[in-house]
Computed example of a mutant assay.
Amino acid sequence: MKYDFIVVGHGLAGAILAETLRSRGSKVLVIDEPKENSASRVAAGLLNPVAGKRFAKSWLADAFIPAANAFYEALEARYGQQLFFHKPIYKIFSSIEEQNTWMAKSAGDNWGDYILATHTQSINQPGIDDPFGGIMIGRGGFLHVYALLDLLTEDLLKQELYLPERFDMDELQLTESGVKYKSIAADQLIFCEGYQVVHNPYFKWLPIQPTKGEVLEVQAEQNFSPECIYNKAVYVVPEGAGRFIIGATYDWRNPDEEPTPQGQEELSERFRQITSKQFKVTGHWAGIRPAVRDRRPLAGTHPKYKQLSVFNGMGSKGVLMAPYLAQRFAAALAGEEEVMPEIHIFRYLSLYYAYTDQQNQQP
């Protein structure tokens, strides 16, 4: 059987890239070992156009958000099911200093509809602890990532375009015309393995830092408003019927997929800084994100083996970035444009050369 592309990995990045390639008419086979606690499946699916404590518009937000909206809306229309939920994000100031930082920042920038309102005092919403006010961020929301992945996987299975198995690197052969995997041939193989790329002999030189993240599901008391997403050290994402997803922790030292009592306590304590409402923990998960040194994704073709490419490193921003970057990378794979320099793996060529030198020196 011959394909245009084999995509290894069907987390959010791999799923969106595979769907994008298929929408362009390519024949795509996906190989993935299903895991309930993959980083994509346990993620809150947040899309936030304003970055962290720096109060900066997220990188390329003006391009990312329209592409993300169009991509998710198209899937919603296909499946007749809501997948993306548009919600404002109430970023609560933690101190008067943080409020002052924002006031100075906002004076010099044209934020347009990214900032719906600035509150210098509490919004007086029952149960919300915001004595210094906060900003209401527009054009945000969250994606039901697990639902999207389930729908796309089911489609691929029906069309016999999905192999639910662990990719066996020993079965991969590089040929003059592409690749061969067992009895399957393809022009190009694209690794979308998330943090597992650190074990990939072709791309392990890339500076991926596996980063553990834990999330909680809680049931809150009545009258805790689900009309927005809350942010103060953690994100609180409304799932309906009093259910909220709280996340996430960042742990670089213990990159395993086991929830911990320490993670639960950290998230619970941060949630208590947002609300005086009582709550009960009803779920607790952990996953490992593929973080990159310079906080930019990784895409491109291997420096030596042109049959192999990688699309990875979205970290916690895959919902925002993946649809647009998948479009651009698919166009680059078709020879229609160059890979975006900001995400091109060639920015780390020095690491590749150091890695190959080290391999050549081994006895």
Rank of each mutant, 00 (worst) to 15 (best):
E19C: 05
T20P: 02
S23P: 00
R24L: 14
R24V: 04
S26H: 13
V28T: 07
V28A: 04
L29P: 04
L29M: 11
L29A: 06
L29T: 08
L29H: 08
V30E: 04
I31S: 11
I31P: 08
I31G: 10
D32Q: 10
D32K: 11
D32I: 11
P34V: 03
P34G: 03
K35W: 01
E36N: 05
N37K: 11
S38T: 13
A39S: 15
A39P: 10
V42R: 09
A43W: 10
A43C: 10
A44F: 00
A44E: 00
A44Y: 00
G45V: 06
G45K: 05
G45A: 07
L46K: 09
L47G: 04
L47A: 14
N48S: 13
P49F: 08
V50C: 05
A51N: 11
K53Y: 04
K53V: 06
K53H: 08
F55I: 09
L60A: 11
L60G: 00
D62H: 13
D62E: 13
F64R: 01
P66Y: 02
P66F: 02
P66I: 01
A67F: 00
A68N: 10
N69I: 08
N69A: 08
A70T: 04
A70S: 09
F71H: 07
F71I: 04
Y72D: 05
Y72Q: 03
Y72M: 06
E73H: 13
E73Y: 10
E73K: 15
A74V: 02
A74P: 03
A74M: 06
E76Y: 09
A77E: 13
A77T: 12
R78E: 14
R78P: 02
R78T: 13
Y79N: 00
G80L: 10
Q81V: 13
L83Q: 00
L83T: 01
L83F: 01
L83I: 07
F84G: 00
F84K: 01
F85G: 03
H86M: 05
H86F: 09
